[in-house]
Design a protein around this nucleic acid. Sequence first.
DNA 1: TCGTGAAATGTAAGCAGTTACATTCGGCTT
DNA 2: AAGCCGAATGTAACTGCTTACATTTCACGA
Lengths: 328, 328
Amino acid sequence: MKATIYDVSRLSGVSTATVSRTFSAPEQVREDTRRRVYEAASALKYTPNAIARDMALQRTNRIAYLICKRQATILDEFYAGICEGIMRRANALNLQLIVSTADDWRQMAANAQSKQVEGVILGGDVAPAMVSEFQARNTFIVLVNNRMEGFDLPCVVSDERQGIRQAAQCLAEAGHRRIALMMGGYSPFIVGERYAGFIEAMAALRLPVTDADVTMCDRTAASAAESAMKLLSGPDRPTAVLAVSDVVAAGVMKAARRLGLSVPGELAVTGYDDSAICTLLEPELTSVHIDVRRMGETAVNLLCRGLEGEDTPRLTVIPTQLTRRGSV
Amino acid sequence: MKATIYDVSRLSGVSTATVSRTFSAPEQVREDTRRRVYEAASALKYTPNAIARDMALQRTNRIAYLICKRQATILDEFYAGICEGIMRRANALNLQLIVSTADDWRQMAANAQSKQVEGVILGGDVAPAMVSEFQARNTFIVLVNNRMEGFDLPCVVSDERQGIRQAAQCLAEAGHRRIALMMGGYSPFIVGERYAGFIEAMAALRLPVTDADVTMCDRTAASAAESAMKLLSGPDRPTAVLAVSDVVAAGVMKAARRLGLSVPGELAVTGYDDSAICTLLEPELTSVHIDVRRMGETAVNLLCRGLEGEDTPRLTVIPTQLTRRGSV
DNA sequence: TCGTGAAATGTAAGCAGTTACATTCGGCTT
DNA sequence: AAGCCGAATGTAACTGCTTACATTTCACGA
């Protein structure tokens, strides 16, 4: 039923090659010929068949973004932000974007091998086996928000150490000496960077760090509030909490309210991610802004360069920025 | 470089037809033949080329989700939730999912015509021209979170009237007579439903509605807070606000705090969407839960049925549910 | 008018599978 | 041993486009 290039060729009286060129390289076709082709095409409601084109060219202009997380994938504001960046950049470059979860990775690896998908961006907690599989199939991959030892691939991460430092500095400037660190559960790489960043920053500020002041909790407000209750109810409590997640910070603020501690008066709090909730809380939350969109865009750029065979940097670090609000 | 079915055919000593069958209909191939083919295939690291298969079969098992919004697309928790649902269901059905924005729709329509994309789910504020274009190209589409007059296509919406009614009832049960409605800016269809739902619910509850108590504002906490300040600072103020968005509700709570009104003591507030922020606010926000995930899943189901040529209901309404927390 | 070279167009061989139809195989009955 | 039949396999046409290479067209100068 569908019109093909042959139908257009017949109706317009030119060869299929010319029809093809009219659509994919019009400058090679003489003006009047071109017009005849267009007329025939619109009479037949012809549209080039993208699948056939992919087949002939052996390329699809299609990339994939795999979010490797157990729970909320795209619902996680962070990964959604990266996705938004990827999407915008992909659109700009005329790339189709397939979004999926890690469950799907074997399937995706197969698709990648047959170049139905040209390259893959992996976000989150990636298993080494997954990376190996893609590499075994000669698929170009870019890691976002993660780094992996022993693999030679481009990574895009935000500058976790800088972010932590900015938060710590902000608290120190406000006169706090006793600063606690509360981290939500993230991938080992992220947690490691953040912890290291904290130690570094505190040393630079000549402030003490005690193990009791470093807490890990789940990434829910309830869990964070619970941990914070313990941390803050002692007689000798920290005067500031550097929460490495806005949700955790919200939990800390809840605990503070329950304990009758005013924020920022009696307790200062900083968050991390600068997510939508920061301006909804009372007081509004000072938080470390991560340019997630740029992370996504950068990942696409790297992927493209890699696909073109160009050299790409192994590591791209996106700077963070502190957004000051009322919680310090 | 890449191994093809011919290479496997040669190495295993069977015809290409048998190789093809071994991969797409193994039960038609005798056990020992099958094994020989598998061996040859793994020796050559052969994987079927999905593009060629798509071409031969004229089908791709690929669908698209187009988010038609100006600003934050996938960053909007609501559309992200729908996306999550679509993604899960698509994975389960072995469909590839392309995610894009409305900017891309002409391109997508062309892809759809050549069946590179088999069907499309449109979310958000869809222009009639867009729908016409897809229909003109014989593409099956499903609308999610929207309905359009004059077009014959399946729609998935949440039961806005029910949601508003649940919120209004909850407030009425708590003894409130003077209930104000605050709506964020959404598509005409949604706003219409919500307003109608409010009028209905208030009538059923035999409560008065005055124009002064119905407010439209932007979907930001700041804008909502500003509107709420006006609404609540008069001497004869409403005792409850039915906010049709959690962000708006957060704005209302901010205004209440500024005015020294305690929530829920002096002012009750309900939100809408039951988003992640509900449990972060103080007090936690009573909100109408929309099963966005199910909306997404349903959209995929409808799309599939439609693609199979089966009849699909024009309208699927997903029920809402009130989640009671501390703000009433 | 003819020759020349660049530009425009045509011919046909891919791209990598699927599958209708034809053929062969192998076990069973007579 | 011949005949038969269904299962297994093979042959080759087909999907719709691109493009290397061959051929034609055309403008321009000699």
